[in-house]
Write a protein that binds this DNA or RNA. Structure first.
Length: 573
RNA sequence: CGGGGUGUAGCGCAGUUUGGUAGCGCGCUUGGUUCGGGACCAAGAGGUCGUGGGUUCAAAUCCCGUCACUCCGACCA
């Protein structure tokens, strides 16, 4: 490819809205161009990179017996009503009417389409297990796109769906896929990624893992143990919280006036926050009359994902203002209105004397003791883990890091086959709902992750396996006839040898060429110049290490092929 | 959805407070001199100042509306 003709504008300055490294570098290198919020065009280098990632994913999916298919982008409402997701998914799903006034939607995931396809074709257990996957554009109308390609509304995704006769068979396959995912991320050149247990969320199902790239710009919080390999998404992480030790006290009503926050009340009473009880008010989603109050120790935070699991309902922050049954700022478990759904965190069970709201203005209780005063209360783990809490496995200290989710796998179970009525005949003639797994990888997010992890102050540093071109060929003084002849000849020879070359054929200053080469990040830079040709040599520089060495012009093709082979074998090891 | 910010040339910005008919750097075009880490000289092209309305002799600038983008939070199959 000739750089002079490439539709790809490099800039010195990043767009003002680009804040994180991957966004800045991909924009500056001209790989992406924003069209609307969270919607991007990709130029040829970026598209080539995307295709290389897709092909690696394909190889690994095919290797675990995946069958590549293609589901539609646009689907009818009826299909999504079978799983009830037409109604339960919010405005992140784009809905519209076709010319016949029929309700349609844009696919944001394809469980329904996968079950629809499988349901019409698979009728016998002998056809299982099987896995179908696709690589396709998804559209999710995100409330807040951000970070360039990290969180977008339209993106390319690989999504896979497996069908099984038994839970054991699903589990076996699930871990084959787990291994394939590790190979994929390694092969595309990511280094600091981990798998973690995650919340299966609204997908349904039980066991789920996320693959996370650890980076400070990540949107997810990950809990890791310093001493063992315990690690989990904040949403499901468990920790053992240090006990708040104190003496038993009598239950006493005290006047607290206008003091409402944990801070204010504890300051007034001269106690630490860990001896108080925090109340967080929610409403059941879709029914703001139904109030949920979660109680935890004053120094802890509610983990809403855990809370949702306990009450098996979706919740939203309560915004009903001060109602008659809730004295905001003075809410407590003792004698609370029975119509309210209450959940108590396990941290509260062990405190001998708690400060709690009195459920009326201007008063709190001190000395509240659940065992004595509310013996039938049940306790659940609904609090967020904090850095420094104790590991539930080994007793070590937990720490919290940020990560970008680069892939996820779920053991779905029969949620979709059941709701959509997919049955298959077993050996004894009985019918059963196949057990499903599903497995996703965002391609655009993988590109951003590579840029985020490998980029340096000069620009992108692309792994050999996914770089749009393997070699960036830079003739200096291309107005010099010998340079031009030798450079074009080398360009042709490399192409003939199967090497992918980006050729900077512009008659421009060395500094510009070097800066563009650094910015665009091809793994190998080759310089042909009057200086190098004086000794009949070329100069070969490795982008990643900045190492530079001269080789005889006649050896260049071989040397380059060796470097490519070496770097590829590192990634495939 | 709640709270902040910004819209002026392809990109980055100044000009807005105090209204007077639009400018700088990079990039682009042409010619010349240079040229192994973003060269120099000269001459050019490019913007109805996001958009609609209002005030005024006169609006990028003041007033009202609206749209877009963005940051923090909520949401996120």
């Amino acid at each position: 490819m000739l750089l002079s003709k490439l539709v790809c504008e490099r800039t010195k300055d990043a767009p003002q809205d680009a804040k994180i490294k991957s966004h800045i570098l991909l924009s500056r290198a001209g790989f992406i161009k924003q069209v609307a919020g969270g919607i991007y065009s990709m130029t040829m280098p970026c598209q080539r990179m995307s295709k290389k990632i897709q092909n690696i994913i394909r190889e690994e999916m095919d290797a675990i017996d995946g069958q590549e298919v293609l589901f539609p982008v646009v689907m009818p409402r009826e299909l999504w009503e079978l799983s009830d997701r037409y109604n339960t998914i919010g405005s992140e799903m784009v809905r519209f009417k076709d010319r016949n006034n029929r309700d349609m939607l844009l696919g944001m995931t394809h469980e329904e389409a996968a079950v629809h396809l499988a349901n019409h074709i698979v009728s016998s257990y002998t056809q299982l297990p099987m896995m179908i996957y696709q690589i396709q554009t998804k559209f999710r109308d995100e409330a807040r796109p951000r970070g360039g390609l990290i969180r977008v509304r339209e993106f390319t995704m690989k999504d896979a769906y497996s069908f099984h006769t038994t839970k054991e068979d699903l589990e076996k396959y699930y871990y084959r896929c787990f291994d394939a995912y590790n190979r994929i991320f390694k092969r595309i050149g990511l280094k600091n990624f981990i798998d973690i247990k995650s919340d299966s969320g609204m997908m349904g199902g039980s066991i789920a893992h996320e693959f996370m790239l650890l980076t400070e710009v990540g949107e997810d919080s990950i809990v890791l143990c310093n001493d063992c390999d315990y690690r989990a998404n904040m949403e499901v992480a468990e920790g053992r919280i240090n006990k708040a030790e104190c003496e038993v006290e009598p239950l006493t009503e005290v006047f607290t006036g206008e003091d409402k926050t944990i801070d204010e009340v504890c300051t007034r009473l001269g106690k630490k926050a860990e001896f108080s009880c925090k109340a967080v008010v929610y409403a059941v989603k879709g029914n703001s009359e139904e109030v949920v109050i979660a109680f935890t120790r004053g120094d802890l935070e509610i983990n809403e994902a855990k809370l949702k699991k306990v009450i098996k309902r979706d919740i939203v922050p309560y915004d009903g203002g001060v109602s008659e049954v809730i004295a905001c700022g003075n809410i407590g478990p003792y004698n609370i209105d029975k119509s309210i759904i209450t959940v108590y965190d396990k941290s509260l069970a062990e405190v001998n004397a708690l400060i709690i709201g009195a459920n009326k203005p201007e008063y709190h209780y001190t000395g509240f003791n659940f065992k004595r005063d509310m013996p039938d209360a049940e306790f659940y783990d609904i609090s967020k883990v904090r850095a420094g809490d104790t590991c539930p496995v080994c007793g070590g200290k937990l720490r919290i890091e940020n990560g970008i989710e680069i892939g996820n796998i779920f053991q779905l179970g029969t949620k979709y086959t059941k709701s959509m009525g997919m049955t298959v005949a077993n050996a004894d003639g009985s019918l059963f709902n196949p057990i499903m797994g599903c497995y996703g990888i965002g391609v655009g997010r993988a590109i951003a992750s590579i840029a985020q992890e490998s980029g340096d102050e000069k620009g992108l540093v692309l792994p050999m396996s996914v770089a749009p071109w393997q070699v960036h060929l830079c003739p200096l003084r291309i107005d010099n006839e010998e340079v031009a002849n030798k450079a074009y000849a080398l360009y042709d020879e490399l192409k003939k040898a199967g090497v992918e070359v980006l050729f900077d054929d512009r008659d421009t200053a060395a500094g510009i060429k070097f800066n563009d080469a650094d910015l665009m990040g091809m793994p190998i830079r080759v310089v042909v110049s009057p200086k190098s040709l004086a000794t009949d040599e070329v100069e070969i520089t490795i982008r990643r290490t900045k190492e530079s060495q001269k080789y005889a012009y006649s050896d260049a093709v071989k040397v380059i092929k060796d470097i490519i082979a070496e770097q590829m074998s590192e990634l495939n090891a």
